[in-house]
Every structure is written in structure tokens, then in C-alpha cells.
Amino acid sequence: MSSLLRPLAAALAAEALKLRRTVALRMCLVTPAVVVTLCVLQFGLTELKVGQSGAEAWKGFAGASFALWAFLMMPLFVTLEAALLAGIEHSDRQWKHLLALPVPRAAHYLAKWVALTVLVFGTALVFVGLIALGGWALMQMRSDTGLAGWPPWWWLLRRCTGMVAAGLFMATIQLWVAIRWSSFTIAVAAGMSATVAGFIVGQSRFGRFYPWSMPVQLFAKSGEHATFAIVASIFGAAVVLAFSVWEFSRREFE
């Protein structure tokens, strides 16, 4: 395992450079901005519950934003990011160059997985920052929103971290699909289909077992399945990741 750490660190440094000027990186700002903007508009244009405390109003606004992100945008974002990250290598058949280097194949795959996880977590942090900014904008737009004081940072960060952990299973599956098949369409179609299926499965009693619906479990039904979703996601991600690395290490590149 220790013999993998040095090449993994090298592969991660290479991944960081490859991300320069990519759509994958720009989407990390664009997608959370779209969701927060929609939520600001929704709160800015609709009747609001009056008489809430500032903290409750913040949680109401942030919770609605998180729910939209976790239910719809996060699965689509993960689909897109996984396809774009894999596409960097598929586009000009870079695998045949990378895999002819004296670097363990596992290092290349794990670096992609870490890059995707960091992008998803980084985007979730951007999302938290934009929620704070959106709340401040709402305060300026309407005085009756109840929003007051500082955002509940600790509450936001805990949910942000939990949501990313609950999305790991989905992200790991999505990355395997995107790397396994070189077609961008296959990767995106798989992710979109799974997300749409999540509309139905996610609202059923099986929702907590479905990888694409696990993140939203943190916000559905007062979060009663949140712990299960996080633990199951981490376990599922570990199993799928182990399989993916094994499969990638054995694969032939023609």
C-alpha cells in the first residue's frame, strides 16, 4: 500500500494540472450558483412564514436549497463531472500514453476518484458560501424573510459534509461507468436515467437504499435515514471502488 502512495501523490499532482481551463472546474461554480439563485428567487417571490427566529429562517432557506441540490442537481453534477474527468483521458486516447508509463494503474484510477471527490466536496463548500451570500441578498430584497444575523455555519457545514458522504456511493459508480466506456453519451445517459429513476425510488420506502437518493435522505423526513444513508454510501463506495480499481488494473487498452 505504501508503494502506491508516492505514485498516487504524483498522479494527483498531474490531475490538478489537467483540470486547468476545463469545463469541469467552471461547473463547480456555475451549478451551485444556479440552485442558490433559484432558491433566492423562490423565497423572494413567495409568501413566507412569519414569526420565525433568524436562525430558523436561515435553516428554512438553507434546507430548501440543500434539498434541491441533493435531490436533483447533485446527481446531475456528479454525472457531468465524472464524465468530464474521464473525458479528459478518453478524448485524445490519452490512456495509451498514461498506462505505458511506469506508474501503477491503480494510482491513475484512485487519483481520478480523489479528484472527483474533492470537486464534489469543494463544490458543496462553494454551495454553502453561496447560500450565505443568497441569504444576505434576500435580507436586502425583503425585510420580512426573518433572516437575521450570521448563517448557522456549523449546521451548514455538517449537512454539507454529510451530503457529500451520502453521495460517495453514487459518485463512485458514476466514475466507473465514465471510465469504463469512452462514450460521453453513455456516461451522461446512465447518470440522467439514474437521477430520473431517483424521483420515483427516492420517494418510496426503498429510497435510502438507492445511491442516487442517498444524499437527499439527510433532508427528507427530518433526516431520519441520514445516518443509514451516510454509512451505506461510504460502505458501498468502498466496495465499488475496490472493484473498479481491480477491473481497471486488468483491463486491456486496444
Partner: peptide
């Protein structure tokens, strides 16, 4: 090795392409 057509990252500069491989092989 150079197998068939060159495998390069079009969105990076020539120097950055080399830097990617340099980092990988230390």
C-alpha cells in the same frame, strides 16, 4: 513510446502537457 497518433491534452499548453507527464514519472 509514441503509439500511433499523439495523445495530448488540447486544453493545456505544450509545456503543461510535458509537466503532467513529468509529475507522473518524477
Amino acid at each position: 513510446a509514441l503509439v500511433e497518433s499523439p495523445s495530448l491534452y488540447g486544453h493545456l499548453t505544450g509545456r503543461e502537457n510535458l509537466e503532467v507527464t513529468r509529475r507522473l514519472i518524477a
